[in-house]
């Protein structure tokens, strides 16, 4: 199986060869890549002469029309859009009941034009034919979001979608991020936990869970330590699944969590967990230092500042006795949350 780079290079070398373009477009289709500029450019060349395209591509020509239409919407190429749309309408339009695939495309065209009601109408029609059409269900959520209906409406729509399509990972993830943006960390965590069940070895889900627990702990006034401890577990798991060299984000999270556990929560009190906490913190610090050894000087400097503020030994960082113990980060996060709630 040729890679995208190979096929793209082949098409670049010979931009008028239909079979080569067809191979490239097919790969983009099956691998679900989003290369709208490439598709629009080469799809346009391929479909310039519709008869020749139909002869060379056979039945695949309609898939190419569909693909080029979506790409044209993505890059906002009105003439190309109209050409593809009319060709598809001529071939598949007027059927009864209307073709669901065509209706979805019409809905997309309406969405691109900003005509939300027309788009919703199309999707309603599709769902009346087949209530399990997941693409139409998803497009409805997108329309709600694009309309600017507000965060709560989007969350409601996504909740409905996850109730209908419980094995749709994209829906769960979108819902999680929507909850996180609304500072409902426990709900976001619930969604990400569902996602880890789909793919137990995905380091990014674990990392995100760690981040969410960390944010939750940092923004709550209730018991923080259990939340930080969960965050630490998830960051550690993420690092276990993918080494710190390629996963500096989890390493940073681990560093911050360890320092938060010691500096924000425990302070001068000692705890049986202190040794493990310090070990994890210094591990994260050393790995981060190594990961940032050969990068842009500015980034390295940033990393060093971070390490100076959060790496063990913690004794040097602990506040003097009788000093205010609330750390600067907590105050900053709380302020952010308050500001955002006030705004929305």
């Amino acid at each position: 199986m040729a890679s995208y780079a190979d096929l793209h290079a082949a098409v670049q070398a010979d931009p008028r060869s239909l079979p080569k373009i067809a191979a490239l477009l097919k790969l983009i289709r099956t691998q679900k890549l989003r290369q709208s500029q490439v598709v629009a450019t080469h799809g346009k060349t391929a479909l310039q002469d519709p008869r020749r395209a139909a002869r060379v591509l056979g039945d695949d020509v309609w898939a190419v029309y569909e693909q080029t239409l979506v790409a044209a919407l993505d890059v906002d190429d009105a003439p190309l859009r109209d050409a593809c749309q009319s060709a598809l309408l001529k071939r598949f339009g007027g059927a009864n009941p209307p073709s669901q695939r065509l209706e979805r495309l019409e809905g997309l065209v309406a969405e691109a034009a900003g005509d939300w009601e027309a788009a919703l109408q199309r999707y309603k029609g599709v769902l009346a034919q087949n209530p399990a059409n997941s693409t139409a269900l998803k497009r409805e959520v997108c329309v709600v979001e694009a309309k600017g209906a507000g965060r709560e409406a989007v969350i409601a729509a996504l909740t409905k979608l996850t109730a209908t399509c419980q094995s749709d990972r994209g829906a769960w993830q979108a819902l999680a991020e929507a909850h996180a943006a609304a500072y409902r960390f426990s709900d976001a965590i619930f969604c990400y936990e569902e996602l880890t069940l789909f793919d137990p070895t995905a380091q990014h889900y674990m990392r995100r869970l760690g981040e969410l627990y960390y944010s939750w702990a940092a923004s709550t006034t209730a018991k923080r330590e259990p939340l930080y401890r969960k965050a630490r577990v998830y960051f550690a798991k993420s690092l276990e699944l993918l080494g710190p060299k390629h996963n500096p984000r989890a390493a940073t999270g681990l560093l911050l969590t360890c320092s938060a556990i010691k500096l924000d929560v425990r302070g001068r009190k000692s705890d049986p967990d202190d040794e493990l906490n310090a070990a994890l913190g210094s591990l994260a610090a050393s790995k981060l230092k190594a990961a940032y050894a050969n990068v842009d000087p500015f980034l390295r400097e940033c990393n060093e500042k971070l390490l100076a503020a959060h790496a063990p030994p913690y004794a040097r960082l602990l506040p003097k006795k009788n000093e205010e113990t609330v750390s600067a980060t907590t105050v900053a996060v709380e302020k952010l949350v308050v500001d955002d709630i006030a705004r929305s």
Binding site: V233, A236, K237, E240, E275, L276, A279, L280, L283
Partner: peptide, 22 residues
């Protein structure tokens, strides 16, 4: 099972020390 991830990450030597201490 995730609980072990921390101990596993920080290496056998530290893990043994921590566990023994606990």
């Amino acid at each position: 099972v995730l609980e072990d991830a921390e101990l596993q990450l920080c290496g056998a030597a530290v893990a043994a020390r921590v566990q023994n201490a606990a």
